[in-house]
Amino acid sequence: MEKIRVLVVDDSAFMRKLITDFLTETEEIEVVGIARNGEDAINKVKQLNPDVITLDVEMPIMNGIEALKVIMEDSPRPVIMLSSTTKEGAENTILALQYGAFDFIAKPSGAISLDLVKIKKELVDKVILAKSSKLGKPLDIKNGKNIVLSPQKYSKIDSNRCGISVRIDKNMNVRKLVCIGTSTGGPRALQQVLPKIPADMNAPIFVVQHMPPGFTQSLAKRLDSISSIHVKEAENGEVVKAGTAYIAPGGSHMKIMKTGTSLTIKVDQTDIRNGHRPSVDVMYESLCELKDYKKIAVIMTGMGTDGSHGLRQLKQTGSVKAIAESEQSSVVYGMPKAAVGTNVVDRVEHVDQIATAIMDFINSDF
Rank of each mutant, 00 (worst) to 15 (best):
L7K: 06
V9L: 07
F14P: 00
T20A: 04
E30L: 12
E39F: 11
A41Y: 09
I42L: 15
V45N: 02
K46T: 13
Q47K: 14
D51V: 13
V52M: 11
E58Q: 14
P60T: 13
I65Y: 15
E66G: 08
L68T: 10
P76V: 13
P78I: 14
S84Y: 14
T85A: 15
T86C: 10
E88H: 11
I94K: 04
P108F: 12
S109Y: 02
S113T: 14
K118D: 12
L123F: 04
K126F: 04
V127F: 10
A130V: 08
A130K: 05
L135D: 05
K142T: 14
G144Q: 04
S155F: 01
N160K: 12
G163M: 11
V166Y: 11
V174G: 02
R175T: 07
L177V: 08
V178P: 09
C179T: 13
G185R: 03
G185S: 04
G186M: 07
P187M: 05
A189D: 03
L190H: 01
N202Q: 12
P204L: 05
I205G: 00
F206I: 00
V207L: 02
H210M: 04
K221C: 11
K221S: 15
L223R: 11
I229Y: 05
K232P: 03
V239S: 15
V239K: 14
A245L: 06
A245W: 02
A245Q: 04
P249W: 01
S252G: 00
T261Y: 03
T261A: 11
V267W: 03
D271W: 03
D271K: 15
D271S: 15
P278H: 14
K295H: 06
V298F: 04
M300N: 00
T301Q: 07
S319D: 15
S326E: 10
G334W: 02
G341W: 01
V344A: 00
H350V: 08
Q353M: 09
I354L: 06
A355F: 06
D360C: 06
N363G: 09
D365W: 06
